[in-house]
Design a protein around this nucleic acid. Structure first.
Length: 125
DNA sequence: AACTTGACTAATC
DNA sequence: CGATTAGCCAAGT
């Protein structure tokens, strides 16, 4: 049969799936950047794909999407949008410091997964 | 099938 | 600091 494999190789889960897994591990009170998530998901330089994955994430899949901000420390959601304020609101509630202009204190709150944390997810045990 | 968009980013000017 | 450029690539037109 011809439909044996997924395009791009079936040795791994889909990119979207891996991205979601990474985002799901970001601890409360911490934030990660799109590029960082991409890298951790094994997709270096594909930051845009992270945004696409989150945007297309079904409502049923509850992910801490609000813990992902851009490399400059700002929400990448449209300025003035409800989603944007919701994101900052949630982060604030988790204890993340946010400047008056909406910039997240990346230097202080960036998630730096330890080796243990990384091995934790995929059937680590 | 060509072209544009976009929850991005790092480098350069 | 802001503007541009180049890299990236799935989806949408």
């Amino acid at each position: 049969m011809k439909g044996a494999g997924r395009p791009g190789g079936d040795r791994a889960r889909s990119a979207d799936e891996r991205i979601r897994e990474v985002v799901a591990r970001i601890p409360s009170g911490r934030v990660a950047t799109y590029g960082q998530v991409a890298r951790l998901a094994g997709l270096p330089r594909r930051a845009r794909m992270v945004g696409r994955a989150l945007r297309g994430a079904p409502a049923g899949v509850r992910l801490p999407w609000h813990r992902v901000v851009n490399a400059a420390g700002y929400s990448s959601l449209p300025e003035g949008s409800e989603a944007r304020s919701a994101q900052l609101e949630r982060l604030r509630r988790e204890g993340v410091q946010i400047a008056p202009d909406g910039r997240v204190a990346l230097e202080e709150s960036r998630w730096e997964p330890s080796l243990d944390e990384l091995l934790w997810g995929p059937g680590g045990a």
